[in-house]
């Protein structure tokens, strides 16, 4: 099956959108001085292979897109996506080492957005991100499963800590607790541990049946719609239950 052509008009439009004062100034003044190289663990982990130094990664991604004004082939964009997703975790460490305080992480995020729009985000990441839309969390866990897990954890730890509850959707609490969907799927004990601590501290808390996954894979993938959706779920839950604050597990 022939791969669809790149929607260069769209890319151009995004490039124009991102060209605010920050991106423009950053790209304009990067002096290619090399201060950022040693700050990047991709660079040091690969025996100082220069192709992993942050400034180069930006030149090869966002720099290239601006230089060609979005007119890239699918092959080229694949290469760009490979760097944007696979050679940078957007940890922002290089920003602290740059004399100009340039933020490659934000630029990588912008590039990811453009790659994602052309279907070039890593498939597994994209799939997990899409789960946010369908299930409200990245692990495709249904609300029933989640509530069941909570009940199971309550029972499991009954002996350990009598009276400990995992209150789902309790209205009028002080605190809304949200967590990483991996906890529910792989480490259910984590919920219990949090519950025990809240219980011991006498916290008046609740756990939402929807909007409990605070991870935002849409953001990592560069999918603005999913990103907004995932964040909204959490805030909706907070509003619905009338809590004063949100605690996240991380």
């Amino acid at each position: 099956m022939p791969e669809p052509a790149i929607d260069t008009d769209f890319i151009r439009e995004r490039l124009a959108f991102f060209k605010g004062a920050r991106f423009k100034t950053w790209l304009d003044i990067c002096a290619h001085c090399g201060y950022c190289a040693d700050s990047c663990f991709f660079y040091t982990a690969h025996d100082k292979d220069p192709k992993y130094m942050p400034a180069y990664k930006i030149m090869q991604t966002l720099g290239k897109l601006y230089k060609k004004n979005g007119n890239v082939t699918r092959e080229e964009l694949k290469g760009i996506a490979d760097i944007a997703y696979g050679d940078c975790t957007a940890c922002r460490r290089c920003s602290l080492y740059c004399p100009f305080g340039i933020e490659p992480a934000l630029m990588i995020a912008a590039v990811r957005g453009m790659c994602c729009s052309q279907g070039l985000a890593p498939p597994a990441l994209m799939e997990a991100a899409k789960n946010h839309l369908e299930f409200g969390n990245q692990m495709a866990i249904t609300t029933e499963d989640m509530v069941e897990t909570c009940v199971w954890m309550e029972e499991e730890n009954e002996e350990e800590m009598p009276g400990m509850k995992i209150p789902v959707d309790k209205e009028g609490c002080d605190t809304l607790y949200v967590l990483n969907a991996r906890e529910v799927k792989y480490y259910p004990q984590d919920i219990a541990e949090a519950a025990m601590i809240f219980h011991a501290a006498g916290e008046n808390w609740t756990f939402p049946s929807m909007g409990w996954d605070m991870t935002n894979l849409g953001m990592f993938a560069g999918h603005a719609k999913i990103m907004a959706h995932a964040a909204k779920l959490c805030y909706d839950a907070a509003e619905r239950l009338g809590v004063k604050r949100i605690f996240t597990s991380e």
Binding site: H46, Y85, G86, T89, A90, P122
Partner: peptide, 24 residues
Amino acid sequence: NHCCGGGGGYIPMGPEYKRRRMAS
């Protein structure tokens, strides 16, 4: 700090990316 090497959505990118994740 140094990033653990699993940030930015690297973990959910799945097994195809694991070798690179381990290297970095």
